[in-house]
Amino acid sequence: MNQLTLLEAGESLENVTLSPVSRLDLIKYAGASGDYNPIHTIDEEAIKAGLPGIIAHGMWTMGNLAKLFTPYYEEGFIQDYKIRFQGMVRLDDVITLQATLANKTDQHLHFDVAASNQEGKDVIKGTVVFSQYE
C-alpha cells in the first residue's frame, strides 16, 4: 500500500471518529503513560482545580491523532509532530481526527492535523511532517 505518495496537496486522509470519551479511556492512558494527574480521572480533584469535570490528557488526544499515519510506516515515518492544545476534551465528547496534505517536497509530506469535538471546535491543532523513505 503506497497511498500517502499518491496524495495531492489539499487532499485529506480519511477522518476517524472516536467512540465517546469514557473514564476508562483516561484511566488506561494514565496507567500506560504514567501521568496520574488526578484532574484526568477523579471528579472532585478536577472540580477543585476549577474545571467543569475531568478532562482528557492533552497527550491522549495527541496520541490518538497520530494513528491516522500508522498504516503508512512502510513508506516513511513521522519526523516532526507539533501540536497546540486549544480546548478541553470532556467525558462523552466525540472526537474526530483529521489530516490534510498542505504541500509536499521530494521527501517530505507536510500535513495540517487537528482533532475536533462534536461541536466542530478544534481541541488540538498542529502539523505533521511525514518523511518518506526512498
Binding site: N37, A49, G58, M59, F77, Q79, Y81, F85
Partner: peptide, 17 residues
C-alpha cells in the same frame, strides 16, 4: 507543583522511529 500546570504545546522530532 504536581497540580495546576497547563500543557500549552508539544513538539516531537524524530531521526527515525
Amino acid at each position: 507543583p504536581a497540580k495546576g500546570l497547563i500543557h500549552g504545546e508539544e513538539t516531537f522530532h524524530y531521526e527515525r522511529p
